[in-house]
Design a protein around this nucleic acid. Sequence first.
DNA 1: CTAATATATAAGCAATCACTTATATAAAGA
DNA 2: TCTTTATATAAGTGATTGCTTATATATTAG
Lengths: 127, 127
Amino acid sequence: MNERIATPICGETHIDKQHEEEVRAHLPSEDEAADAAAIFTHLSDTTRVKLLSMLAVSDMCVCEMADLLGMSQPAVSHHLRILRQCDVIRFRKWGQRTVYYLSDNEIGDTVKRLLYVVVNGKGQNNG
Amino acid sequence: MNERIATPICGETHIDKQHEEEVRAHLPSEDEAADAAAIFTHLSDTTRVKLLSMLAVSDMCVCEMADLLGMSQPAVSHHLRILRQCDVIRFRKWGQRTVYYLSDNEIGDTVKRLLYVVVNGKGQNNG
DNA sequence: CTAATATATAAGCAATCACTTATATAAAGA
DNA sequence: TCTTTATATAAGTGATTGCTTATATATTAG
């Protein structure tokens, strides 16, 4: 993490062009910002935070998740589809069941880290 | 971070009550999940990711941010209000200008860490 | 005072969202 | 075969979102 500049670009006494360049240099591109925002969107729902927190502990099938959360099966499926579409979670079939699990890839790891910072990491300073 | 259990609660061979208890124990409460989701909601927009990335580098006033992003002033103000309302950012007045800055509190720190993980931390395994 | 500048806010609108009910699909059991 | 169970999907709905245009407020300059 970089140290933050406490004087605004316009300067409270003068315009600081160097600060402006510093900000431009660190400004994420349209695509980078969109990708980042997309990841946060997937986590920006109470039900999905719970689902991912559960899957971070154990693989689970849909009926178990719906049961444990006290939610309707289509509502849970709705959120699982959102998480599936962006490869945060995957599934394997087991008889009639569909067993979901956190993807073992970069996205899954990132999501796990984000959840840890926000849900479990409260009040901590180190991850 | 905890190790994940790869066998679903229902068990692919038997129902595992211990896994269910493990999941229940780690399931965030309604309030915890809502708080976490709220933080992610604030970051779940391309413009807000950019604004926060900018403020992570330097304090800035509204017209500078609008100018640098090529967006209308009300649009930027709209997003700044969202971030202000949840104390992710704060402001100080300087003449006609309003200078915004990242809050120097737990929320601001958390947001900075989250942004770092997703925007700057791509492909890295340690924060 | 008036004019210009910086910012906030309000109204409105198209798009998206989370969830519901209803239905489709698919596997297992009788 | 027919039934049950597990899951997905489709259609519909009320709520929210991001942005626009228009206006209000507040500070500075003349």
